[in-house]
């Protein structure tokens, strides 16, 4: 075989590999640790956001219930974006949404809810971020879907139209 052909073949193979890797690279692929999916909700007790003396137990709350748990924070920009979809879920269904306010200041969080609307039926605060770690969360925003005490789905990053539909379907 002539060397020119070999070089052309080499070039073609490399271009193909390049395209495949380039595509893999640019593809939006957030790390999806599915560690907790399919497991029971951990026994976490949280403080109520509005009333410091009140406690919220995740196990009691989610037992025999369909609950969407959303971890959010006022300093998190994607949370603003996803708030619209959470409001949409609240409007179109009777799903209970628990918001876990992650490493946030109370006043900022209140302002956030005032500015963008409050989609949550119940809000818990996780000032130190410990509870969210136990839940298997990696950051904000993250959304967990819990059915009868079992985590059935987990979404990393802001939820969108597609995820909203998935959640609505899961609740049926």
């Amino acid at each position: 075989m002539k060397i020119q052909y070999k070089i052309v073949i080499l070039f073609v193979i490399l271009v193909l590999l390049f395209l495949a890797f380039g595509r893999a690279l640019l593809k939006d692929k957030t790390y999806q640790p599915t560690e907790m999916v399919g497991k029971k909700v951990p026994n976490i007790i949280l403080n109520d956001f509005n009333n410091k003396n009140k406690k919220i137990s995740l196990v009691n709350l989610t037992n025999n219930n369909f609950v969407v748990i959303n971890i959010w924070s006022s300093w998190c920009i994607p949370c603003k974006e996803e708030n619209y979809f959470l409001l949409k879920i609240k409007k179109n269904s009777k799903i209970n949404i628990l918001g876990i306010n992650y490493k946030d200041q109370h006043t900022n969080a209140l302002k956030f809810l005032k500015d963008f609307g409050n989609p949550f039926n119940l809000i818990a605060s996780d000032t130190l971020g410990e509870a969210s770690i136990q839940l298997g969360a990696y950051g904000v925003p993250e959304t967990f879907v819990v059915k009868n005490g079992i985590i059935v789905a987990k979404f990393l990053g802001p939820i969108n139209e597609e995820i909203t539909d998935t959640i609505l379907n899961l609740s049926k």
């Binding site: 070089i7 080499l10 490399l14 390049f18 380039g22």
Partner: peptide
């Protein structure tokens, strides 16, 4: 990725 692509292509062409 582009860098590696160029390095691989360049070096293997020299080799060939």
């Amino acid at each position: 990725l582009i860098t590696i692509f160029l390095i691989i292509f360049g070096s293997l062409t020299i080799f060939l």
